[in-house]
Design a protein around this nucleic acid. Structure first.
Lengths: 239, 239
DNA sequence: CGCTTGCTTGACGACGTTCAAGCTTTGTGG
DNA sequence: CCACAAAGCTTGAACGTCGTCAAGCAAGCG
């Protein structure tokens, strides 16, 4: 299988064979995490960076009263933890929402690559700024969108992100997450997520059976979600 | 006056005199924006990066029905738009909430510095990952905190961020924003922001008169907000 | 087969929005 | 220096959305 990080980056800029080789070298050591287990815990000071190869991982924040909020969902090709190359200490957990296979790369090795190949270094920087742009899109959805539009926005974003790494087909993709997880991403109660999902299904724009999401009316869903993909930086450009 | 970006970065790592000189060189051209004007508009493809020297700037997103959401507030020392060095196209506005003085640096110049001084390049990268960490903290507050705690969290964050660049004293700082702006940051209606502010004042932990915020009980406010400053990466460390 | 986990439904209450109006402060021009 | 306008703050009342509680159902797994 193709390295999903290569797919992720080459969607945004051309990669040289040198750069592709370097990326492949970064993703040699793989490791598995079962659904529900933590890859990184709050307070950790990771010494390697984690790239998702398969499965879904989430950034989970826990509040004093036990409430949980998920601030980001990571799909294959996402460098979950490039941040920790630079940051002190994790202020949240990274959890496997489904069974995951990840690649681990020791920080010094990542740093060496960014210094040897500055253009590739910029692309990894780019990956973290795309993360930030996604965070902002979530902030907007949390603050000013109806639950229905927010849910639609989430499903649009997932479709594009999964499509980039070859995990969507015919407007359809696997999304094996529970309504509990979804509630913690949308900032809603489980009960309300369930009702919102029913409303969304009732529009006929989306079907979500088992763990398969199928978008039946992309244009309708996009409009409902006011989804503009600009923030995902999908254009191939010299960076 | 000291370059606020130097203050921001040297709080996180030691800077060489070379690096400080380079930063000063990046911030030569200053420009003013009056309160309420846009520095960058949605759809722009900026060719220079913007650093806030004085005043407050916000990332403003507008929805189809005219609703506005502010996804980030930028204070002096914040590189508002380092992102645009790498990103395609702005998907939101950057607006001056108060009168602002900013520094403009052409992108090629920024890039040259990051290649010449890799360590400084990493620190600029760090600045963008701190932005991402702040975004995540906002997501958590939006999704799972009460308006009262959210407001408290916001005031805690502002205190720390302003203090770092020398703009706070004795737990007190200027914050010349309207309740409308605040509502668009917290994802609430203006009416509710007003009532929440009254509740917060009633606790006696904060006074906010005119444009001066004074924190009377830092520990109380921190607890109410469940504020942990880890995400701001305040430790000086080799990065 | 039975337990656990996740999904679904209903009833009720709380929290936050909307609408509408009055008040206060700030700034501007006569 | 006052008058007036504009912007922002504050308050009340009514409504609606969403959360909570509680229970039943469906599906997956040991």
């Amino acid at each position: 299988m193709t390295n999903p990080l290569v797919m992720f980056l080459s969607r945004r800029d051309d990669l040289s064979t040198d750069e592709i080789a370097a990326l492949d070298a970064l993703t040699l050591n793989s490791q598995d995490y079962a659904a529900g287990t933590a890859m990184i815990r709050q307070g950790d000071r990771p010494t390697s960076s984690i790239l998702v190869l398969e499965g879904l991982a989430a950034r989970a924040h826990y509040l004093a009263d036990g409430k949980r909020m998920i601030s980001a969902l990571h799909v294959p090709g996402d460098y979950v933890d490039l941040h920790s190359l630079l940051l002190d200490q994790m202020d949240h957990d990274v959890t496997a929402l489904t069974d995951c296979r990840v690649a681990l790369t020791a920080h010094p090795e990542v740093r060496r690559v960014t210094e040897r190949l500055p253009h590739l270094g910029r692309l990894l920087w780019l990956a973290t700024t795309i993360d930030a742009a996604m965070h902002r899109a979530w902030i907007v959805a949390l603050g000013r969108m109806s639950p229905l539009s927010h849910m639609a926005h989430f499903l649009c974003e997932m479709y594009i992100r999964l499509d980039i790494v070859g995990l969507a087909k015919d407007y359809s993709y696997r999304l094996a997450i529970t309504q509990i997880d979804l509630a913690d991403m949308l900032g809603l109660s489980v009960v309300h997520v369930n009702r919102t999902l029913q409303d969304l299904r009732a529009t006929g724009m989306v079907s979500w059976v088992g763990s398969t999401v199928s978008i039946k009316d992309w244009d309708g869903l996009r409009e409902l979600a006011q989804f503009e993909d600009a923030y995902l930086n999908l254009n191939k450009r010299a960076r």
